[in-house]
C-alpha cells in the first residue's frame, strides 16, 4: 500500500517553547491510523498543523504525492476533513444544514445562480440535500435531521461532526478524540462506524485517549510524548515498546 499522507520533520514552536519537533511518519492508503500520547504531547497541535490552522515552523506534509497547501479551506479541498476535540458544530443550525455546509467545497453555485436560480442551481441544491440526508443516515442520525444541532445528545453531536466532515468527500478523515465523553456502548458503536467509513475507502487518522479503542481498531499507531515521536508501528508492537509503556501505558496502569 502506498502512503496517502507523509509528515516529514514537522515542528512547531509557541513563543520559544517547542510544542512539536521532528515528527515524521506516513499513513498508508486505506488505513486506520492512531495518534496517541499523554495529555499535552502535541497531538492536537499536530492536527492543527495538518489542517492548516497553524503553519509549521519546520518540515511539512505531502498528501497523495504533492505538498499540502497552507490555508485550511484549501487543505479541505485537497481531501482532508477533520472533527474537533471540543465539538465545533454550527450550533444553531439544524443537523441537516450542518452537513449541507460540508457539501460547499464540492459544489459550485455562486452569487448569480443563487439570485437567478437556473435549473442547474436547483438541481445542485437537491443533490446537496439528498447527499446530506444520506450521510446523516450513514452515521445513524437521520431521524434527527431537523433538530437544532445544539440540542442533540453528545454522542449524536460527535456523529454529526463526522457526517459533516464526510460531506466534504475527504480521502483522509482526521478525528480528534471522537470517543471523548462517550460511554462504552457508544464507543463500541463508534468503532463500528469507523470500520464502515474505512470500508468506503476513506483513510482515517485518529487521535484518541481510549487506548483500548485505538489498539483494537488501528492498523498502525504513532506515539507522541513531549512533542516528540517515540514509537511508530503496528499496535501489538507499540504496545510492547518499553518507552511507550513508561511514557503512556505505564502511567495509565499505575494510576
Amino acid at each position: 500500500m502506498s502512503a496517502l499522507l507523509r509528515a516529514t520533520g514537522v515542528g512547531k514552536r509557541f513563543g520559544g517553547l517547542s510544542a512539536l519537533g521532528e515528527v515524521s511518519f506516513s499513513i498508508p492508503q486505506g488505513a486506520i491510523y492512531g495518534l496517541i500520547g499523554p495529555n499535552g504531547a502535541g497531538k492536537t497541535t499536530f492536527f492543527n498543523l495538518l489542517t492548516g490552522i497553524y503553519t509549521p515552523d519546520e518540515g511539512g506534509f505531502e498528501f497523495d504525492g504533492a505538498p499540502l497547501p497552507g490555508a485550511p479551506h484549501a487543505v479541505c479541498a485537497r481531501g482532508i476533513a477533520r472533527t474537533f476535540q471540543n465539538i465545533r458544530l454550527f450550533a444553531s443550525m439544524t443537523a441537516l444544514e450542518n452537513v449541507m455546509v460540508g457539501r460547499h467545497v464540492r459544489t459550485r453555485a455562486g452569487l448569480f445562480s443563487a439570485i437567478f436560480r437556473p435549473g442547474s442551481e436547483r438541481a445542485e441544491e437537491r443533490a446537496i440535500r439528498a447527499r446530506a440526508l444520506e450521510l446523516l443516515d450513514f452515521v445513524g442520525i437521520a431521524h434527527r435531521a431537523q433538530e437544532v444541532s445544539r440540542h442533540l445528545s453528545y454522542g449524536d453531536q460527535r456523529r454529526l461532526e463526522v457526517a459533516r466532515a464526510l460531506a466534504t468527500e475527504p480521502r483522509l478523515l482526521a478525528l480528534d478524540e471522537p470517543a471523548a465523553g462517550m460511554n462504552s456502548t457508544e464507543t463500541a458503536a463508534l468503532g463500528v462506524l469507523l470500520q464502515k467509513i474505512r470500508a468506503k475507502g476513506v483513510t482515517i487518522l485518529l487521535i484518541e485517549h481510549d487506548v483500548k479503542l485505538v489498539m483494537g481498531l488501528c492498523d498502525r499507531v504513532a506515539v507522541l510524548e513531549y512533542g516528540r515521536l517515540i514509537a511508530e508501528g503496528p499496535p501489538e508492537q507499540v504496545q510492547h515498546d518499553p518507552r511507550v509503556i513508561e511514557a503512556y501505558l505505564g502511567a495509565e496502569a499505575g494510576a
Binding site: 509557541f14 513563543g15 492543527n48 490552522i53 497553524y54
Partner: peptide, 8 residues
Amino acid sequence: GERGVEKV
C-alpha cells in the same frame, strides 16, 4: 506584542 495564536 507577539503574534497571538487563536485558541482552537
